[in-house]
Amino acid sequence: MRVLLTTDGSENSNNVLRFGAQFSGLSDQLITVLTVIRAESEREQGKAALLGASQLLTPMVSNIRTKMRLGQLTDEIVNEAKEGRYELIVMGIQPKRKPVRQLLKSPSILNVVEKAPCSVLIVKGPYRSIRKILLCDSGVEDSSLPGKFAVRYADLSEHEEDITILHVMSQISAGPGISGRHLRADAEDLMQEKTPEAKVLERNIAILNQPLIHPHPKVRHGFVVDEILEEAQAGDYDLVIIGAHRKEGWRGILLDDLARKIILQIDRSILVVL
């Protein structure tokens, strides 16, 4: 797997590098570390960041390449990802900005996720070993998140991982007289009743049932974003995985951007799978 790690030399970047190296499978494959400088005057600073990254990663990764690009952060990361045909970008989240700036401009990380040609891993919080994963599957027929995860990332794991497959039912009854059993049922009850949600969960478990991976289904009821954030905290997961359902045309205009809200609000690392 071709992995692009990004750094700006900060302490947070070191977490990005460690987490990225761990996620890449500690293998001997080539890992590229990229730093982006906005002006020539920052070149020395960039060099120092790359040197620090190399020193940090050398004990973990045998084949490291460093790169420096000049320009806007979002554009350069996306361009590098396209040119280098990477399969994963690993980035850190920027420190919180002033509310006015937040309103005026999207954080770079969101722009990268939007434009990137591949999946993006956003590293947040302190470094932690990946053992508990929360996979939030929307159940969209044409984009099976567990399927993509199984194909691309499942075999990178060198130790056992617990994966909780979460489906959030945010529905309420549209009117009186409707049977609301399923609006309160947990995953087990839904599976017993063979509901459509249960069928999707069962399919996902079958996909993820691989050596070293222990998938469990879970259903929560409430607002999609709230329930994902609450489950991530309650289960103390090391990594949250969501799909990047890029919508174009009318869907982009009409549909709410839940992934954006999750990325911004979640307090731990999140993988946005394209």
């Binding site: 409707i178 359902h245 982009g252 709410d256 992934a259």
Partner: peptide
Amino acid sequence: MNHFSKMENNLSDFPNPDGIPPVVD
């Protein structure tokens, strides 16, 4: 505006096992 990833938890629109009450006026 970012439209990169609108998640859609769309498991609700499956055939109805319970029957749907009629529309009310």
